[in-house]
Design a protein around this nucleic acid. Sequence first.
DNA 1: GCAAATTAATGATTTATTCAAG
DNA 2: CTTGAATAAATCATTAATTTGC
Lengths: 229, 229
Amino acid sequence: MKVHQLARAFWDHRQCETSLTLGCKRLRPLAPKLPGGCGDEPIASSFDLKSFIRPDSAPQKLLPPNPLRDKKHPSPGQVESHPGGTRWNPTQEQIGMLEMLYRGGMRTPNAQQIEQIAAQLGKYGKIEGKNVFYWFQNHKARERQRQKRNILALTTHTTPSNPLLAAPALTLNLDIRGEVGGEEQSLFKRKCRSWTFEGGEDNNSLDNYKEEGDDHKTLELFPLHPEGR
Amino acid sequence: MKVHQLARAFWDHRQCETSLTLGCKRLRPLAPKLPGGCGDEPIASSFDLKSFIRPDSAPQKLLPPNPLRDKKHPSPGQVESHPGGTRWNPTQEQIGMLEMLYRGGMRTPNAQQIEQIAAQLGKYGKIEGKNVFYWFQNHKARERQRQKRNILALTTHTTPSNPLLAAPALTLNLDIRGEVGGEEQSLFKRKCRSWTFEGGEDNNSLDNYKEEGDDHKTLELFPLHPEGR
DNA sequence: GCAAATTAATGATTTATTCAAG
DNA sequence: CTTGAATAAATCATTAATTTGC
């Protein structure tokens, strides 16, 4: 695949910086990046991460076979099973560690940092530097997304009542006149296996929702597993 | 750039970040790509060539050759000034060669190709793989920019009002009297659960529910996730 | 319970913007 | 003002979770 050219390119660079990137970036005011402040040493970044990172040799990746092309068609060819799997599948420990770093403030680790992190996390499962790089990129971007979304949700439309989560996924007015047969009863239960009502939970019986002199009943269903994961 | 890399320790900074971003500044959103932008692709060639060009084969390896610049820091610290210049300064030959490749259809060379190109161009002056990578990225992007600009110049802009944000709940009046089979309910629910609402896809087979004058069933659907993927 | 059907997440790429050296 | 470099926003593609009908 195409792969990582990008990533590659990244690695190569030196990275510089890093940090500053942070947030305020946009403040473009002049302040260039701060001078050296830190004393930093040259740390070197430049080492050969590359060699580190891309062991190239690695049999790894491989992948790709195919690329582009279409997706799904079974093309006879390749298919493959890539033995190893085609993409990084982080373990719980790895994720936990990365989140810890993220919460600690890390956003755009430089090559050296990436390497160290990858090396460390390698203890818990297969992982490469690029995976770490991408993780930070995505995590950062998605946090922004969520945040922006929330702000918009609260700002725009005042959707009256419930801002977010409170909104029912599904509202339905059921025609329940007459007796509710067992047939329907069971069907109903099945349907609601994964949904819950605002009011009650335990009793999934339609009768409980039936009110006298009414042919309809309004039920608001909320997904049982809103967020998940 | 460069230079100091502040190696800042890992985390140190914490930053602010995040949120501020908001400034709408970046909100490019509003007009997403409307303009022909998208169209860009037309060029088409790229695609084909791509497959052509990138045999992808994978052999990959990668290469990378070169690394980073490592260099340059004499040992002493980094000083920065880098006399030599901090960034690639392409020679006429290199540019010519790259443009030739570009005109030939190359847009996103893979790692292997990048390496070969860099090696070749290295004969005319100092150059690294990342320089080649960036050159193609920028050249491609800027060609699009120019193109888009020209198109816009010829087109009137209808001020696009801003459509996004609509987040209305969908209300449907269905006829479900009597036996509303769970079957149908389920099907409907399934169809609408996702985000297809609004514009309405007819494939929701809502019609099936609309039978003659009967009682109505009102379903209100809220997008489960506001923005969506 | 289970396997097929769907949806939500999220890893990996690509495209658009922004920053700043020259 | 041009353009190398870097970063952020969009997208694409796979994988893990849920749902659902039996």
